[in-house]
Amino acid sequence: MKPENRWWVILFAIGAVLLIARWFVLPGGFGRAYVRAVPQAVDAEHPDGQWVVYEQATMADYLEAERTNPDQSVYAPSPSRTLGTWIAAFLTLFVLSFVIRDNPLYKIAESIFIGVSAAYWMVTGFWDTIVPNLLGKLAPGLLRNWAVPGLGDDQHPELAYLIPLILGIMLLWRLSPVGGWISRWPMAFIIGTFCGLRLMSFLHADFLTQIRNTIVSLYVVDDGGGFDAWQSLKNLILVVGVLCCLVYFFFSLEHKGVVGNTARVGIWFLMITFGAAFGYTVMGRIALLAIRIEFLMDDWLWLIDPTNKRLLADAAGFFLPLFGMG
């Protein structure tokens, strides 16, 4: 066995031992999910609904319901969601294992992810874009009888939507053995239109707006009518900063002499900008890790219970008398 593989085996052994220990040391099990049955489409003919939708519930809900009525069938443990929780937990660990080293488990997680997510986006594209925005505009009658019965009767075919359809067909033409060049036309159309659009929107929104927002007074008058030196200084730094950074972005001037020095100050401003953004971002990233670890500890291992999902279990007295659910 290669030394590297040995490490992995040891790691897995530790993990397995911990899981087993979790099972025996803290009784009451873990990683179970519960659901609440909600009858749907209830009417006079179907007082119990025509079908049932299961919504997420907590163990506390379930125990409470069992306590008040042992024969209840509204709340129940859910095998499929329990399985889901376990799979999600293992996938989380598989991905995290990548920071140690690339390994087959990560590759499995990666392969699953690519497959399901590519399909997810395609399904979304079909049901959220093609169906309402293409079929819905071209053949509203068809949709009304098929997938969107709520579509208004006043919706008539809009022939303008033939354009994207034709463009789409041209785009797919590249799959055919001849005339693949035709697929460049829709691309040219798309790129051309968006160039025009962005040219205007950037000049309008970003360019002019940023200039306008930077036009500030360097002699700020406070409420009492006096000179507000502090605000004026802040404004001065702002204006000088913007101008220096702009000088840095000049392409036709070499960064020498006065220009060089100004550009240097511009870089300093940029560096402070970047440092600030970095510092801010760290916070968000840590929260992301925190939520994953919370998932592992709370939903899967049941080590902590900050949102009182299982508190009633404790109160009911048949769980964790020793510790575990403070």
Binding site: I286, I293, E294, M297, L303, I304, D305, G326
Partner: peptide, 13 residues
């Protein structure tokens, strides 16, 4: 640094 505080805070609320 992330896991330990979560555990402690989760436990003692």
């Amino acid at each position: 640094c992330v896991a330990v505080p979560i555990f402690v805070i989760g436990k003692y609320k």
